[in-house]
Simulated scan of single mutants.
Amino acid sequence: MASEREARRRACLDKAAAEVDGLVARGVVMGGNAFSAVLLVKGELAEGETGGEGAFSGADGTALRASLAKLGYAPEDWEWLLSVDAGGEPLDAGLLREAVCALDPATVIACDEAAASALREAYADELAALDALEEAMLVPGALARVLGMRVMNLGGFAAALGDPHEKQVMWARLKRLPPLGEPI
């Protein structure tokens, strides 16, 4: 019984690794814990950041990790995905959608307008079916439900860090995304 369970677990891990490896081979840049509930999507790299492991190594990454921890997420419970390839070119909408699907997050957070725009294109049909225009357009701060995922566009998280008022706006938006199972 235990060996059968271990075999299923290993098969699941192998499948996930093969999916991620296939996406990386096609130009997708991602990192973090691939089994996380939260996916941070970024399309604009800050000065000094690289497309690899450095994508969330700046002040915005530090602030996002601290915010998620303050909301009650485990320190390792997040993953990230760039909406651009290693050369800075936008990912094809189908490829971005495939990457999000492979990572299977419960919550998707667009950290900047480039990421939100890419998500709008990748999920155009699903967003168009939403009743609320703010949700359908992924207006910054609106919380949309798309294919069972919570999706929010923060509206320029990195740029907001230099302004105390805008930092509070970002915090208010993030507070709307507590770990699932917790009161909202």
Rank of each mutant, 00 (worst) to 15 (best):
A2N: 06
E4Y: 11
E4T: 12
E4A: 14
R5S: 08
A7S: 13
R8D: 03
R9W: 10
R10N: 08
C12N: 10
C12H: 14
L13V: 11
D14H: 11
A16S: 14
A16G: 09
D21L: 09
D21A: 15
L23V: 05
L23T: 03
V24E: 10
A25L: 13
R26W: 00
V28P: 12
N33L: 06
F35C: 14
A37I: 03
V38G: 03
L39M: 04
L40S: 09
L40P: 12
V41M: 08
V41R: 03
G43V: 00
L45T: 08
E47F: 07
E47M: 01
E47G: 06
T50N: 10
G51K: 04
A55L: 02
A55K: 05
F56E: 00
F56P: 00
A59D: 13
D60M: 06
G61E: 10
T62W: 14
T62S: 15
L64M: 15
R65V: 08
R65W: 10
S67H: 13
S67F: 14
L68H: 10
L68F: 15
K70C: 02
K70Q: 09
K70N: 07
L71R: 07
G72E: 06
A74T: 00
W78S: 12
W80Q: 01
W80C: 00
L81G: 06
S83N: 13
V84P: 11
V84T: 08
D85S: 02
A86G: 05
G87D: 09
L91N: 01
L91K: 00
A93C: 10
E98M: 09
E98N: 15
A99I: 00
A99V: 01
V100F: 01
A102G: 06
A102C: 07
D104G: 12
D104N: 14
V108K: 04
A110I: 01
D112S: 10
D112E: 09
E113F: 07
A114D: 02
A115Q: 06
S117Q: 08
A118D: 12
E121H: 11
E121Y: 09
A122Y: 02
Y123P: 02
E126M: 02
E126D: 04
E126R: 01
L127E: 07
A132T: 10
L133Q: 11
L133N: 05
E134W: 01
E134V: 13
E135K: 07
P140N: 04
A142C: 11
V146C: 03
M149T: 08
R150S: 11
R150D: 03
V151F: 15
N153V: 03
N153K: 11
A158K: 06
L161W: 10
P164S: 02
E166A: 10
W171G: 05
W171I: 01
A172R: 14
A172D: 11
A172S: 14
L174K: 04
L180A: 12
E182I: 14
E182Y: 15
I184E: 01
